[in-house]
Amino acid sequence: MKKSIGDNIFPKGVSFENGLQLLKRAGYDGVELWLGEREWFQIGSTDSQMREMRQKIEDAGLRVSNISNSLDWKENVSARDASKREAAFRHIQRQIEAAQIFNTDAILIVAGLVTSDAPYNEVYKRTLDSLKKLAPDAAAAKVKIGVENCCSEQKFLLSPREFNAFLSDVDSPWVGIHLDVGNIHDTGFAEQWIEILGPKITRVHLKDVHTHRGRCGNQSVYTNIFLGDNNWRAIRDAFTKVGYDGWLIAEMEAKYTYAPDQQIYDTAAAMNRVISGNL
């Protein structure tokens, strides 16, 4: 297994190059690039700018684990507004192109947002249609679309069986799940998601979660690896069980008031323990 972390964790004021150096010093193998998050990687970034970024990543001795985006929350493939849906298609297709430029084979998207006025069945059908439409692009580029489970934020695909059924409905080997083991909260157990969805997992996000606390106002339920309620031994064993040996990508909320770079080192150390199984 290889370790990665998003470029959105780079401490404020740290340049792309210095952020990469920091990751390398902390022992990461790769970096997750978030389209739309930091100034160096936006929807308007050109191919040549991306190639320059790739060079910097390689110069730092790193690889790109996957291309994610932070745009789906505003422009989603399930939106009623056709212009927003088209915008979602555009940024996802750009992610696929970026994946090719950065020489990685996976992207992350958030597909389907259920709200009080965008009901579940409507979102399900529109999301399904959209992914069926995107799948041939992904296949042609040989890039897997990983649909992230953001269960409580999306109010969509809330159980592993339903997620599995949804992916079966999409029916493409190029569309799978980007599994986040911290996003399951009180609605289940991460290890069971791994067991059920095993062969369809494209990438994995690691973080911990405080269960039984809910989400209240701006208070987050997410925390650093080992500080929450995830059963890390079961999660590690489940990866072995299903034969997942790919990228583990830390997705941390910046929690450190002082020495924010320390969170990057501490996370790398925790990931080493997960990978080694020394729990």
Binding site: E191, N231, R233, A234, D237, A238, K241
Partner: peptide
């Protein structure tokens, strides 16, 4: 025991 020794 399931938490320490494992589930599998």
């Amino acid at each position: 025991q399931l938490r320490t020794t494992g589930m599998f």
